[in-house]
Simulated assay, not measured.
Amino acid sequence: MTEDEDGPVTDDTLLTIGAFAARARLSAKALRLYDRLGLLTPAHVDEVSGYRYYRAGQVERARLVALLRQLDMPLARIAEVVEAGGVAGADVLAAYWAEVETRLAGQRTLAEYLRGRLSGRNSEMYGKFVVETVELPEQVVITETRHVLADELPAWIGASLGRLEEGARECGGVTAAPFVRYHSEVSMESDGPAESCVPVADEAAARAWAVAQGRVRGTEVRVEPAQRFAYTRVTKAQVAHPQLMAAFEAVEEWIAGQGLEQAGPCREIYFADWDAAGPEDPVCDVAFPVK
């Protein structure tokens, strides 16, 4: 293989890394990095000298990689875009950017929430939530527990409650709204655990069902005692982060202000059809057992 920089340059012409870097308007250091990352591999590497040679036709890919890296795109997604190319590559980029805008919108909302906390406007934020108490009777629940991070939580809640509601058919049916208990914080750094729970009618059948499950996915049966709960009702729109965080904190503040004590893990109680609900429809209670 030879370098041909003096004659006509075609897509198959081999260029030294320096010549190729000049054409791509990139540094040789950047090209070596792209090689290490698996994003742009030289067309040929001399076995004796170790010199890298690129085909002239790789210039467009090099420039595309450089531009995509300016979007802070993960390496795997960059590789997906450049390998797909054309309209397919544009579709991959569009999907990625939609994810970025969704994340930025959430971060913008979180930043406003944190500004409120730092500036002492907590009561203004918490005032959106009306806190009440309710006495819930004893109930038998079948449960599934998992250590899960915040970005995995919504999908796991839906899947686990679906499995439990299916299992409830063997346990006399569902008797009350399903809920999720949080034994510890769930965030991007803390993984709970969280526990999905479905109240059922028949304790004996529930225990037989749990034995048949062989404790797969951490399934258990528990008898929840009759308890008093402090709770606030939230809409579908407020389930998003950080509005839901503010709801939890509003209930905690109310409990402290009433001279009560928290008596166990907090929970979200889902009483509405999520898919049928509109943004302003109540869908969930944020609740703490109190004494």
Rank of each mutant, 00 (worst) to 15 (best):
M1Q: 09
M1C: 13
T2P: 12
V9E: 06
D12C: 06
T13W: 00
L15W: 04
R23A: 08
S27F: 07
S27R: 03
A30P: 07
L37F: 03
L39T: 02
P42W: 01
P42V: 04
A43C: 04
H44E: 13
D46Y: 02
Y51C: 00
R52T: 03
R55K: 11
R55E: 10
Q58L: 03
L64C: 07
A66G: 12
L67W: 04
L68S: 01
L68H: 03
Q70T: 15
L71P: 07
P74Q: 05
L75Y: 00
I78S: 02
A79C: 01
A84P: 04
V87W: 13
A90G: 15
V92R: 05
A95P: 05
A95K: 12
A95H: 11
W97Y: 14
T102R: 14
R103Y: 08
Q107P: 06
Q107S: 13
T109Y: 08
A111Y: 10
A111N: 11
A111V: 14
R121N: 11
E124C: 05
M125H: 13
G127R: 09
V130E: 15
V130C: 05
E132M: 12
T133V: 09
L136I: 09
E138H: 14
T145L: 07
H147N: 08
E152V: 04
E152D: 15
A155G: 12
W156G: 02
G162W: 11
R163W: 10
L164C: 04
L164I: 09
L164Y: 06
E166N: 11
G167H: 07
T175K: 12
A176H: 08
A177E: 08
S184H: 13
S184C: 03
E189V: 12
D191G: 08
G192A: 01
A194N: 03
C197H: 00
R207L: 11
W209G: 01
W209V: 02
Q213N: 11
R215W: 15
R222S: 09
E224V: 09
P225E: 02
A230M: 05
A230W: 05
V234Q: 01
K236M: 07
A237Y: 09
H241P: 07
A247R: 06
A247E: 00
E249V: 12
V251C: 09
E252L: 13
I255V: 13
I255E: 10
A256P: 00
Q258V: 09
L260I: 10
Q262L: 13
Q262S: 10
G264T: 02
C266L: 15
R267Q: 11
E268Q: 10
A276R: 15
A276F: 05
A277K: 07
V286S: 00
A287N: 02
F288N: 02
P289K: 00
V290F: 03
V290P: 03
V290R: 05
V290I: 15
K291W: 13
K291T: 15
